[in-house]
Computed example of a mutant assay.
Amino acid sequence: MNGKPLRAWAQIDLTALRSNVSALKAKAPTAAFMAVVKADAYGHGMVPCAKAAVEAGATWLGTATPEEALALRKAGLTARTLCWLWTPGGPWRECVEADIDVTVSGLWALREVTAAAEEAGRTARVQLKIDAGLGRNGAQPEQWPELTAQARAAEEAGLIKVTGVWAHFSCADEPGHPSIERELTVFRQALAVAEAAGLEPEVRHIANSPGTLTLPEAHFDLVRPGVAMYGISPVPQIGSPAEFGLRPVMTVAGRLASVKRVPGGHGVSYGHQYVTPGETTLALVPLGYADGVPRHASGTGPVLVAGKWRTVAGRVAMDQFVVDLGGDAAEPGDEAVLFGPGDGGEPTAEDWARACGTIAYEIVTRIGGRVPRVYVGDTGGRTRSDDDGAACPRA
Rank of each mutant, 00 (worst) to 15 (best):
A360L: 07
G264Q: 06
I12F: 05
E174Q: 15
A154N: 06
L72P: 00
L61W: 05
V337L: 09
G368L: 12
V293P: 00
V102Y: 01
G301N: 07
R188T: 15
R80F: 05
S19E: 15
P29G: 07
W108G: 11
A207L: 02
R125G: 06
D343M: 08
C49L: 06
S298T: 14
A390N: 07
T123R: 15
A330T: 10
Q150G: 00
Q320F: 14
L107P: 00
G314D: 05
E118H: 07
W84M: 14
L159H: 09
A154K: 04
L107T: 12
R18E: 14
G333I: 04
D334T: 10
L17S: 07
R136G: 09
A290R: 14
I363G: 00
E335S: 05
G344Y: 04
T163G: 04
R310C: 15
A56G: 10
V252A: 02
V316Y: 00
E362P: 00
I367Q: 05
P66M: 12
E202S: 12
G307S: 04
R7P: 00
V227R: 04
R310L: 13
G226Q: 05
T358K: 02
L159E: 09
A395S: 15
V268Q: 04
R310G: 04
P91R: 01
Q127K: 12
E97V: 03
V293T: 06
S22Y: 03
V54A: 13
A228P: 01
D386P: 00
L72Q: 02
G76H: 09
T212E: 01
R255L: 08
T212W: 01
D328Q: 10
T103A: 14
K308W: 07
F321S: 02
G314C: 06
G377T: 02
M1K: 07
R295K: 08
G381D: 09
V303C: 08
W84A: 13
S269K: 06
C49G: 01
C356E: 12
A52K: 07
L147W: 00
T81N: 02
Y270E: 13
V37D: 08
R373H: 11
T383A: 14
V316W: 00
P393R: 07
Y361N: 13
H219Q: 10
V374M: 14
V376K: 13
T65N: 00
V312K: 00
E97L: 08
P216A: 03
P341A: 15
G176R: 02
G267V: 10
G333C: 09
T365W: 05
R261Y: 06
G226Y: 06
G327L: 09
R188K: 15
A353F: 08
Q320R: 14
D99L: 04
V162D: 08
A26M: 07
Q140M: 15
A194M: 10
A197N: 01
G368K: 13
V165S: 04
G333D: 03
V249I: 08
E195G: 11
A283E: 01
